[in-house]
Nucleic acid binder design. Structure first.
Lengths: 320, 320
DNA sequence: GCGGCGGTTTGACTTTTGTCACACCCCGTG
DNA sequence: CACGGGGTGTGACAAAAGTCAAACCGCCGC
């Protein structure tokens, strides 16, 4: 926590430059170093979160579409990322917006639950560095091998690192070979306490998984394509923190879920801010399930997804 | 709340420049305007809090002296502003540090109580603009005419304006001519509710007033020099939100206090974060009274005041 | 004691940003 | 309809910031 003496100079330079508004050469003179060094210090100060620069995400929350979607679905807040922008790479835009929104939702001292997946890791990857000591970032579910850096513990760790927050990982596999083993492991004090602590979170961050044969759970080997297919037939609608939910967002009583080490879904529903980011348009059905299940209060989606959601909301809710 | 269409372009420019890291000429090209305009938009975005740049105040919290003072006095957190800096105008430094600390203590959605005085206004005057919609800034005490902009309502209003927060003023005088009238006014629903709402604050900001004949209360005509002198003899130790406290920080049962419209001191004591800023070294005795009275959890002081406090803490507490 | 290796620091150069005077435009007024 | 403010937008220039290769420094092993 205390400023390391090598960082002291970073703090001083940042303070004089950003807070006092001195020029770099003035800062250099005052600290008795060259201006080039000052420039370097300032970059490091920005990179480590000693200085943080944030831009309001109003721009994306301000769409009329966002308002309509909030009114229709009852979500607390919706951000819409336009995809039609030619000049700006729209695929890369979503995580950037999501990261800014995520930062805005964090309060000092918060405990934050983080799930895993491509979307979450993309967010982590563009998350600006910040100085949020006192914040705790918790893994929401057990681990499993995943391609690239999408592993649950990596998502948690990277986010914690960037925020200068404390990271808490769950040292258990996401899925176990048998229900008995999963039960026993859930009963272990270390694991039990960590899962229980999730109820203290003020904010959770996740995406929703699909139930196709190319879903993450299948690709990472937690389920076979056949098992997933069967689950789909049985009414599976999406994946939240590694657990299967049905098309109305209810926990499914299936073998997979019973063998899962993950946050209790009812607990997640009680967390005040539930931020969901959906990148792919293919995730329409899972998203609907997640919203119906009460897993979303703050939503970041593309324009086209927002339109689809809006136009088909009545239809999908009437069907219930 | 919604982005006015004239502001839309500010948001866009700020987003592209600060979040995406484009250069000004790239932003200009993308928005189809000149680079000079982009530069102007960016300045406005900074000035209005669409973009906010903040520097960690660790530097000032990190003094060994600060640690010692926290340990000795039991305060939650202390920031120490060095005064010996030749190059930097140290008188101007204190409010700048205090403003940065104040910003760091604010959480989104907070309700903040603000008192009045030179120190508080100095802080307001250098407070960076920020986009803290959802925050509420409340006046802690009634109004009175004060020189420059030190009036309670002005302090509140200016701080709320800079934060883009909601400001709530108390439309009553600080001191009334008679106790009866003060009582009746306190009983008025509008006033009563506002005073009651102070208990919902998560943070209060104030300095402490002295009890000399040149104190603010005297200069603003709330008390005569003689009355103040008499109060001093009777054990007055300082002024908190317009009310006299004794040398141990207890509310004094005096005519002035009974005629005062201000936050209940016991209520203030229950507010989690009580931030006090003391600029002048002459305020040693009042500061001690305020700390003893439990009015301070977060303190911003000069090095010399910190030293004095540290060396004389045992002495002043033993005396109690 | 010397060579080499990681890192920081610096001077010199290039690129980017800030600024300011002037052009422009909209709108209300004489 | 001409006039004159108040505010915006712009081109050109000056100022500031970013960058990079080379120098430097402390430290270790030989």
């Amino acid at each position: 926590m205390p400023v390391r003496s090598t960082d002291q100079i970073l703090h001083k330079a940042a303070w004089l430059y950003y807070t006092h508004g001195l020029r770099q050469d003035e800062v250099a003179k005052q600290l008795g170093i060259s201006r080039a060094s000052v420039a370097m210090y300032l970059r490091r100060a920005r990179e480590t979160g000693i200085v943080s620069i944030s831009t309001s995400t109003q721009l994306f929350a301000d769409d009329v579409l966002a308002r309509e979607l909030e009114d229709t679905t009852g979500l607390a807040s919706v951000w819409i990322v336009p995809e039609d922008r030619h000049a700006m790479d729209s695929a890369a835009e979503m995580p950037v917006v999501a990261a800014a929104v995520f930062l805005e939702l964090i309060k000092k001292g918060d405990r934050i639950g983080v799930a895993w997946g491509r979307t979450v890791y993309h967010l982590a990857d563009v998350l600006p560095y910040a100085d949020l000591q006192g914040v705790t970032v918790m893994q929401l579910c057990g681990n499993l091998g995943a391609p690239y850096n999408y592993r649950p513990d990596q998502c948690t760790t990277e986010i914690a690192r960037r925020l200068n927050a404390e990271g808490i990982n769950i040292y258990a596999p996401l899925v176990l070979g048998s229900e008995r083993l999963a039960d026993e492991l859930r009963g272990e004090p270390v694991i039990r306490e960590q899962l229980a602590a999730i109820s203290d979170c003020q904010l959770v961050l996740y995406s929703v998984g699909g139930c196709e044969s190319d879903s993450h759970l299948v690709r990472c080997g937690a389920l076979t394509a056949d098992e997933m297919h069967a689950l789909g037939k049985a009414g599976a609608g999406g994946v939240i923190a590694g657990q299967i939910i049905d098309r109305n967002g209810r926990w499914m009583d299936c073998a997979h879920n019973r063998r899962c080490i993950s946050a209790d879904l009812d607990t997640i529903r009680t967390i005040p801010k539930r931020m969901m980011v959906v990148e792919e348009d293919a995730k329409f059905e899972p998203l609907v399930a997640a919203i119906k299940g009460g897993f979303v209060s703050h939503l970041v989606v593309t324009t086209s997804m927002a339109r689809r959601l809006l136009s088909r909301w009545n239809e999908v809710t009437d069907a219930a």
